[in-house]
Amino acid sequence: MSGVWIISEKRRQSLELLNIGRQLADKMGTHAAALLYHDREHAEDCVSHGADEVMLLPPLAGEEPAESRIPAIAEEAKKGDPDLILLSATPRGKNMAALLAARLNVGLVSSCTQIDYDEGSKTLVMERLAYGGAAVQKVVCSARPAMATIPPRTYETAMPKSGRQGNIRELPSPSSSAIKVIERKVKAKEAKDISEARVVVCVGRGMEKEEDLTIARQLAEAVSGSIGCTRPIAEELHWLPEELCIGLSGIQVKPDLYLGIGVSGQVQHVTGIRNAKVIAAVNKDENAPIFKASDFGIVGDLYDVVPKLISELKK
């Protein structure tokens, strides 16, 4: 047996994984299979988007965590012996992938940004970032199946084709996990997706108070842009939602203009803006690393500079 498997619980992510999964399966001369969490309608969807087979995991009891699916998935993987298993690099996807890789005792390439199949040597060569984004690491997995997590939006969603046929089957019920979920707190609202924004104004820790976000918003408005932020703003201060965190552990953006205010420009952040056409920054420290990564930089206090920028932009 063989095949390329994708494991996903969200529609969009499964279609993204199917895109690259199907391409690789074709190159490798094998089939593509999707392992989904109990959604029949979604299963048909995956078939029309390229899955030859869909395996459905039955629903979980209320306090069971996603992890209780690991034993069933691992059993199925041992039987099916896939060449490659792909998951999304979201918090849950990364956790499930690591536990599954540990259970199967195989390699896992985390936050993989590119996968190529070398037909000569019949190996999968994968790329990821290392050293906070300062380096590109090329790796191969030495055990079967190879595994990788792929950041959301690395690939477009697969194109549907009518008339595709696929086999849909149910997997055994999940087992019971030692850990229990006693409460679920759902995020109040999903933040606007900025991965396709044309202009991004990024707020860093140089911002002193949460109320001061107003001036960042005014600046964003003046350049018709969206607000993004660094990791400390989202995860330590919680001033903005995590979806707006740009960088290695957040999202990649590729705007025409990135304008950082009070952002130091550590490599983990800058790696998320490398595809911006123009990078500009305001920082009061002339030695801040952001200036080495910028096309245009203003050395100055953001509280002085931003209002001036807004009025100049309005002219």
Binding site: N105, L108, V109, V139, C141, S142, K292, I298
Partner: peptide, 24 residues
């Protein structure tokens, strides 16, 4: 090892690094 590194290269990007002051 279960994952073997075959290469590590720099990803640093070149930018024009032009500086500006704060007067009008």
């Amino acid at each position: 090892p279960l994952v073997r590194t075959i290469s590590l290269t720099s990803s640093r990007m070149e930018r024009s690094c032009e500086r500006f002051g704060t007067d009008a």
